[in-house]
Amino acid sequence: MIVAPENYVALSAVLFTIGVVGVIARRNPLIMLMSIELLFNAANLALVTYARAWVNNVGHIFAFLVITVAAAEAAIGLAIVAVAFRNLPHVDVDDAAVLKG
């Protein structure tokens, strides 16, 4: 069964929207990091879809790069979360606003 690329793109858009809403609406940093992973994966899905549709492997290569970056981002993000919340009473990103002007 061949699924039309439009469906993949639509799924990608839905995933991206969920990710954006998660980043914006949630205050738990872990959830936010997970939402960011959703954003990455939505982008990956779109890249792979277009690569297949246009028969151009650049999209695949980009997907791999994004996966690598996502792994690095997750590691750094978790490290920041661990360090930051060792010093803060609650797990809430709005509390970590000491650098505001």
Partner: peptide, 16 residues
């Protein structure tokens, strides 16, 4: 200063 809330969500929203 009024833009610099320190809330990551607000920054993310403006980014979006």
């Amino acid at each position: 200063r009024s833009f610099q809330t320190g809330l990551v969500r607000v920054y993310a929203l403006s980014l979006v």
